[in-house]
Amino acid sequence: MKLFHCGRCANLLYFENSRCTQCGADLGFAPDVMDLLAMEPRAGDQWVAIVSGNIYRPCGNYLNHGVCNWLIPQNDTHTYCVACRLNRTIPDLGVANHRALWSALEKEKRRLVYSLLRLGLPFGPLSEQQGGLAFDFLSDQPAMFDERAKVVTGHAHGVITLNIAEADPVERERMRSQMAEPYRTVLGHFRHESGHYFWDRLVRGSPWLEAVRQRFGDDTRDYRQALDWHYQSGPPANWQNAYISAYASSHPWEDWAETWAHYLHMVDTLETAWQFGLRVDARDDVHPDTASDPAFDSYRIDDFDGLVRHWLPLTLALNSLNRSMGHEHAYPFVLAEPVVEKLRLVHQIVHAC
């Protein structure tokens, strides 16, 4: 994730900011220029960018609920920004705590959308285009001993459903422990489920399908049967030698989604590290540290091997820093060679878009 600076006072800004803490300027993220802009409100709902003079409107979810900091260009007639137009269902805001949970989900969803825009991937609102993307943010209903009242996070036909309970850190930690998952985050859910969406958009029926099957396995295996077997019997022995996570071993679709999510973890974390000026010595005399180049861009770099060369030492540093603070490893993963090759294929497919 990029760092930003206030157009009025040059104060350091972060992606979620909606007001500059130094000069008080209103802020909004403009996806047309991929920048967080300092704005001056004008008559009506018009905001003018202090530096460029371009005119925008704040997203309807900012005006009505205060849960979005994205902007809409003047010539765009939509009420909601490009990220909020992906929403098909939002929680019932009349229920206590739902607005706070929804706000937490929206922050992570916007990080996903930022990455998809940076990568130039094809997507748009399902309500506006065939093959588009949509989000349903749903809550469990009173069960009355009926498990069908539980909302299952998942993807189907372009719709990503998230149980809003995942935004509750207590509930998420309970599920993390119950499912024996060393890494479980809201952003991880978004990235994983987007992997299923982009399987349909980029892989299914495409020239990439055979190459993906060679790396990830036969996706025609019965999916429900494979998941039932996984939950009953657990992952195969030594799954770490071929998969990024235990769940990835359940079925090729899940392997793809887990690997896709991991690729998004990599490029976004590397961008954040380099934006902060963090440089980790890759100890590689053959390949100079290209991260010292101000033009280094983890989202746009064609050289996948270069991406990995910077990623591995960064994860060692992250884990060491976390342990120094008394926390568990920030990066509880091992990139075995088959996993690296799967990531390489994801990288190739993304950069072919």
Rank of each mutant, 00 (worst) to 15 (best):
V152C: 08
Q178S: 10
S127F: 00
G158M: 03
V159A: 01
G120R: 07
Q130F: 00
A156V: 09
P125S: 06
A143D: 03
P182V: 02
R172Q: 12
T153F: 00
V151Q: 07
S127D: 13
L133D: 01
P125C: 08
R184E: 03
R118L: 12
G124Y: 06
E173A: 13
P182Q: 05
R174H: 12
P169N: 10
F145G: 06
V152W: 12
H157A: 15
A143W: 07
P142W: 11
R184G: 00
A156K: 13
P182G: 04
E166Y: 15
V151F: 09
G124N: 05
S177M: 11
Y183Q: 11
P142K: 11
D146N: 15
E147W: 04
D136R: 14
L121E: 04
Q130S: 13
V151I: 15
G154V: 01
V159E: 01
G154N: 14
V152P: 00
A180W: 02
E147K: 08
V152H: 14
R172A: 08
M175E: 14
I164T: 13
A134P: 11
L117W: 03
P122Q: 07
F123T: 01
T153N: 11
L133G: 02
P125V: 04
V170Y: 11
G120E: 11
P142A: 09
I164L: 10
G131L: 05
L162N: 04
L162W: 04
G154M: 06
A180L: 12
L119W: 10
T153I: 01
R184H: 13
R174E: 06
A149R: 15
F145K: 04
R174T: 04
M179C: 01
V159C: 04
Q130E: 15
I164K: 01
F123P: 02
V151S: 10
E181R: 15
P169T: 07
V152S: 13
G131M: 03
R174M: 09
R174L: 12
D146Y: 07
E147V: 10
E147Q: 11
D168V: 09
V170S: 10
D146R: 11
G131Y: 07
